[in-house]
């Protein structure tokens, strides 16, 4: 294999430096300029990302984890075209990203639903931007609401939906205009544990069906191991890729990825369909005798590996934070 195919996404020595607001920058320079590698020698900026090298294949589910403030969200903004890197290049299908585009769909942690629109109206929002005709919009919106398990909730306004359902609407909205890449910025961070689990399963099911390339940011190691085919661990400020851990969960994950799953657990009126083995039980599609993938030894092994990688970075990040506060 000498001729490798062009990766779907490639980060090529990507760096990102923000100009620092004068007073903070000045203070930082005086007290810790030389010791802190996050600040360039001139004290001119704040380096969020440095020399990011990462290839992501088409259809791959990649998770980014890292200590808070390591530039994970910045990385996603670069990929989304909401910001441009100060050095290096972000390539999508071999072409540099120059701005936002509907070939990438973003799911935000705070849902970002338009509160004056119904669930259906929110899903149609992206389609309107894409110039899809009205009738087709309604059809597609219905289809994608159904894909995320929100049949019958199309006419509800966001304030009438639970947090989990809101995030489902947001996911449906991002999928509806059919982007190649789904960018997810801690999408389940604001949800309670149970809702989060059911949405994780659901996301894997949707990913399986749509075969999108997913770039997913999280704080949770468990979530990273469960969802990712590969987990990229970032260092604390400035963010670099410390290591990319391939995840192989064995049968446990195969089952959950085969997608029996506990589909609609958090839908209040959705019945308990998740408890009913769905059709072909033999292949482990249902939940009947399937082990929780989160409790397998493979899961624990991967979890520990990533924990180790993160541990030093988190304590370093905390140290940096303490320093910043003490200034």
């Amino acid at each position: 294999m000498t001729t490798k195919p062009i990766p779907k996404i490639r980060f090529e020595r990507v760096g990102m430096t923000f100009p620092v607001r004068a007073p903070r920058g000045a203070r930082a320079r005086i007290s810790s300029g030389a010791r802190d590698p996050a600040r360039s020698p001139a004290g001119a900026g704040f380096t969020a990302l440095e020399d990011i090298e990462l290839d992501i294949a088409d259809g791959e589910f990649t998770v980014l984890v890292g200590p808070s403030g390591c530039g994970k969200s910045t990385l996603l903004d670069l990929l989304g075209g909401l910001a441009l890197p100060t050095s290096g290049r972000v390539l999508l299908d071999g072409e540099p990203v120059t701005g936002p585009g509907r070939d990438r769909g973003t799911v935000f942690q705070q849902y970002a639903l338009l509160p004056w629109r119904t669930a259906r109206g929110n899903v149609e929002f992206g389609l309107e931007a894409a110039g899809v005709p009205r009738r087709e919009r309604a059809e597609r919106a219905g289809e994608f609401l159904s894909l995320v398990g929100l049949d019958g909730f199309g006419d509800r306004h966001p304030h009438e939906l639970s947090g989990g359902m809101r995030q489902r609407v947001a996911i449906a909205r991002s999928l509806a205009y059919d982007p190649d890449v789904l960018l997810m910025d801690e999408p389940f961070g604001a949800l309670d544990a149970q809702t989060r689990e059911s949405l994780q399963d659901e996301l894997l099911r949707v990913w399986q069906r749509t075969r999108k390339t997913v770039v997913f940011i999280t704080h949770s190691i468990d979530e990273a191991v469960l969802l990712g085919q590969r987990v990229a661990v970032l260092t604390s400020r400035p963010g670099r890729v410390k290591e990319v851990v391939p995840i192989a969960l064995g049968d446990g994950r195969a089952d959950i990825r085969a997608g029996g799953g506990r589909a609609d657990n958090d839908l209040a009126g959705g019945g308990r369909s998740g408890d009913v083995p769905s059709g072909d039980d033999r292949t482990g599609g249902g939940r009947g005798g399937v082990e929780d993938p989160r409790s397998t030894p493979e899961f624990a092994r991967h979890r520990h590996r990533i924990w180790e990688l993160l541990h030093d970075e988190v304590s370093r990040a905390q140290e940096l934070e303490r320093e910043a506060v003490a200034l």
Binding site: P100, G105, T106, F108, Q110, Y111, A112, F125, A129, Y177
Partner: peptide, 15 residues
């Protein structure tokens, strides 16, 4: 976040 959303779907300014 709504403005960020609008930018991410490339909504033209008037829209």
């Amino acid at each position: 976040t709504l403005l960020k959303l609008a930018r991410s779907v490339n909504l033209p300014p008037w829209r």
